[in-house]
C-alpha cells in the first residue's frame, strides 16, 4: 500500500538530479567517484590526497546552511532510532561500506550509472538487507 501523504515525487526526482549532477561534476572535474564512504574512509586511512576528500565532506556538512539561505528553512528530519540503536547502526555502516568498497552513493548512484555488475550486486544486497531490517523492526519486534 502506497503512502501517498508522504510521497514527494517532484522534490525527490529533482534532488536526485542534483545528486547525479554533483557526482558527474566530481568525476569529470576531479576524476573521482562521489562515493561518500570511500571519500571518508580515505580520510580515516590517512590517504595522501586528503584535501579534495575533506573538501567534499565539508561541502556535505555545510549544505544545510546553504539550503537554509537559499530556501529560507530546512525540511524536517526525524530520527526514530534511540542512541544505542544509532551507535550499532553507525558501526555496521562504517565496517560494511568499507568491506563492500561503497555505499548508496558509490555503488547505488555512480556504480549503477556506470552499469557496473559489482555495484548492481552491492545495491541489491544492501537494499534487501534494509528491507528485511525495517520489516523485522516494524512488523516482527514492534
Amino acid at each position: 500500500m502506497i503512502d501517498w501523504n508522504h510521497f514527494t515525487p517532484l522534490a525527490s526526482l529533482a534532488g536526485g538530479v542534483l545528486i547525479g549532477l554533483a557526482a558527474s561534476w566530481l568525476v569529470l572535474a576531479n576524476g573521482r567517484i562521489a562515493g561518500i564512504s570511500g571519500l571518508l574512509g580515505g580520510l580515516v586511512d590517512r590517504a595522501a590526497d586528503w584535501r579534495p576528500r575533506a573538501a567534499f565532506i565539508a561541502g556535505l556538512v555545510l549544505a544545510p546552511l546553504l539550503y537554509r539561505v537559499l530556501a529560507g528553512g530546512l525540511p524536517s528530519a526525524n530520527v526514530t532510532a534511540a542512541w544505542p540503536q544509532l551507535a550499532l547502526a553507525g558501526l555496521l555502516v562504517g565496517v560494511g561500506t568499507r568491506y563492500a568498497s561503497g555505499c548508496t552513493s558509490g555503488h547505488g548512484v555512480c556504480g549503477l550509472a556506470r552499469l557496473s555488475p559489482r555495484s548492481l550486486v552491492a545495491t541489491l544486497s544492501f537494499m534487501a538487507a534494509g528491507f528485511v531490517t525495517v520489516y523485522v523492526l516494524r512488523h516482527v519486534l514492534a
Binding site: I36, P64, A81, G90, L91, L92, V121, T123, S125, A129
Partner: peptide, 26 residues
C-alpha cells in the same frame, strides 16, 4: 566481501535510516 559488506551496511541503513552522505548532512 562485497556481498557481506553490503548486507552489514544494509542492516545498519535500516536500523537508523541513515547512510554515510545523509548522516554527514544531518
Amino acid at each position: 566481501r562485497l556481498v557481506l559488506g553490503s548486507l552489514l551496511f544494509g542492516i545498519g541503513w535500516g536500523l537508523a535510516g541513515l547512510c554515510p552522505g545523509p548522516a554527514l548532512v544531518l
